[in-house]
Amino acid sequence: MSRTVFCRKYQSEQEGLARPPFPGPKGQDIYENVSKQAWQEWLHEQTMLINEKHLNVMDPEAKRFLDEQRDRFLNNENYEKAEGYVPPAHDANK
């Protein structure tokens, strides 16, 4: 049986992550308070930010930016979105 957490993004009990996404207190906090769904959505947003803004993830400034945006996203605060992204239109004929 998968573990559940009270997800701070969705404010409901949801399936939790199998393990902390990275070491340290912040990874443990995410493990205990963020759902698997919210984390997967963040990874998608993070990828778009990295690609659209041409971020070098080895650059400390880029890492700080992504950390801040992650915290905002997971806390339901305004976060910076990829400027050029347009979500695909839903085709009702499919």
Rank of each mutant, 00 (worst) to 15 (best):
L43W: 02
K26W: 06
E77S: 10
E77Q: 15
S2G: 12
N51R: 08
D67M: 08
P60S: 07
D59N: 09
R3F: 11
V34F: 05
P20C: 01
H90W: 13
S35N: 06
S2Y: 14
W39F: 14
V86P: 09
L17S: 01
Q40A: 03
I50S: 01
N93K: 13
P21L: 00
E45H: 10
L74E: 00
N51I: 08
N75T: 14
K94V: 14
R70F: 04
T47R: 15
E13L: 15
F73R: 08
W42D: 06
E32N: 14
V34S: 03
D91Y: 01
P23M: 07
Q28H: 06
I50C: 00
K9R: 09
N51Q: 09
E77F: 12
C7Q: 07
E15T: 15
N76A: 09
Y79S: 04
T47L: 12
T47S: 15
M1N: 02
R8P: 04
Y79V: 04
S12G: 09
W39E: 10
K63H: 05
R70N: 05
N93D: 15
M48R: 15
L49V: 06
A89C: 03
N93W: 04
M58D: 13
E52R: 07
A92P: 06
E15P: 11
A89I: 09
V86T: 14
E15W: 06
E45M: 01
Q69S: 01
T47C: 11
M48N: 10
P21E: 02
I30L: 03
E41V: 00
A82F: 04
N93Q: 12
D29K: 07
A62Q: 01
P25Q: 13
E32K: 00
Y31R: 01
I30Q: 01
A18F: 08
T4A: 13
P23S: 04
T47N: 15
D91H: 03
F22W: 07
N93M: 13
V57T: 15
S35T: 05
N78H: 11
F65T: 08
D71C: 08
E68I: 04
D59W: 06
L49H: 05
K94W: 11
L17A: 04
E32T: 11
H54K: 12
Q46G: 12
M1R: 03
V86H: 13
L66Q: 13
R19E: 12
P20A: 06
Q37Y: 14
E13P: 09
W42R: 01
Y79N: 01
F73H: 08
C7W: 08
Q14F: 09
Q14P: 13
P20L: 02
G16H: 05
H44G: 11
S35R: 08
E68W: 02
F6W: 08
W39R: 05
R3K: 09
W42C: 07
P20Q: 00
K81E: 14
N78K: 09
E80Q: 11
K94Y: 14
Y31E: 00
P60W: 01
Q14M: 11
R64C: 10
M1D: 05
V5Q: 02
R64N: 13
F73L: 08
C7E: 02
M1Q: 02
M58I: 00
H44I: 08
G24Y: 01
G16S: 02
D29I: 03
Q69R: 00
R70E: 06
A89K: 14
S2Q: 14
Q46F: 12
I30D: 02
D91K: 04
A89H: 13
L55F: 03
Q37W: 02
N75F: 13
L74M: 05
H90R: 04
V86K: 15
F6H: 10
L74W: 03
Q46E: 15
